[in-house]
Amino acid sequence: MTTRRATLSAVRVALAAAGATLALAGCGTLPPPGSGGARACGSGFETFERDTLFFGRAIPSGGQVSDAEWTAFLDSTVTPAFPQGLTVIDAAGQWRGVSGEVVRERSKLVVLLHARSEKDDAAIAAIIGAYRQRFAQEAVLQERQAVCVRF
């Protein structure tokens, strides 16, 4: 989205995102209460990070990020940073920008599963920065969770 406080316009979008992510990764054992958040993955699972990036497609000065522009950004910026794979989900979102107006817009969610590393953190920051600059966005929402996966 184009603000730090992005929200999805429909529960079905969130369910679709969760379903698509679960199709790629199995769920492991949740950490026991009081464990300080440390994740203990079950047998056969690995601990990964799941970063979901929310890209709003409305351009503040007018217009939309076209399908061709999105594909070019994905091919030139996101895929080279995460060649091992990713998931792209079409979404509809809304947010309240600095102007105070509620904006509804088409969006893309990119789900990245990766081992936690400074290299990947820097790559994600570069992707967000490139999108913000190229399409004059206020922000790109990033959500991060530790997950258990098996391939």
Results as ranks from 00 to 15, higher is better:
57 R>D: 01
17 A>N: 15
10 A>I: 03
23 A>D: 15
86 L>F: 15
72 A>S: 12
82 F>C: 02
98 V>C: 01
57 R>N: 01
87 T>I: 10
74 L>W: 00
104 R>P: 01
34 G>D: 07
32 P>S: 14
77 T>L: 03
27 C>W: 11
8 L>M: 15
108 K>W: 05
44 G>M: 04
95 W>N: 01
37 G>N: 07
111 V>M: 08
104 R>S: 13
85 G>C: 05
104 R>V: 05
24 L>D: 13
94 Q>W: 03
76 S>C: 05
118 E>M: 11
11 V>N: 14
40 A>I: 11
42 G>L: 08
67 D>L: 09
34 G>K: 09
11 V>G: 12
118 E>P: 07
15 L>S: 15
53 L>T: 02
21 T>K: 09
69 E>D: 10
106 R>M: 06
53 L>V: 01
90 D>F: 02
114 H>P: 02
52 T>F: 01
18 A>Y: 14
69 E>G: 01
97 G>V: 02
65 V>T: 04
100 G>D: 05
32 P>E: 14
112 L>I: 12
65 V>A: 03
43 S>E: 09
114 H>A: 14
107 S>K: 00
26 G>F: 08
106 R>I: 05
61 S>M: 04
72 A>Y: 00
30 L>I: 12
48 F>R: 12
99 S>F: 06
34 G>F: 08
46 E>K: 10
56 G>I: 02
30 L>K: 11
83 P>Q: 06
47 T>H: 11
86 L>W: 11
15 L>E: 15
93 G>E: 02
87 T>L: 13
36 G>H: 08
99 S>P: 00
33 P>A: 13
89 I>Q: 04
21 T>Q: 13
65 V>S: 03
44 G>F: 00
58 A>P: 00
88 V>P: 05
87 T>C: 06
120 D>I: 05
118 E>G: 11
56 G>S: 04
83 P>R: 06
120 D>L: 06
78 V>H: 03
104 R>Q: 12
113 L>G: 03
52 T>N: 02
26 G>R: 10
78 V>E: 06
101 E>W: 09
99 S>N: 09
118 E>H: 10
62 G>A: 02
42 G>F: 08
100 G>K: 08
53 L>R: 01
9 S>N: 14
98 V>S: 07
42 G>P: 06
37 G>K: 05
115 A>H: 11
28 G>C: 09
20 A>H: 10
97 G>P: 02
88 V>Q: 04
58 A>L: 04
71 T>S: 10
35 S>K: 06
106 R>P: 09
93 G>M: 05
61 S>G: 10
13 V>R: 03
18 A>K: 12
36 G>A: 07
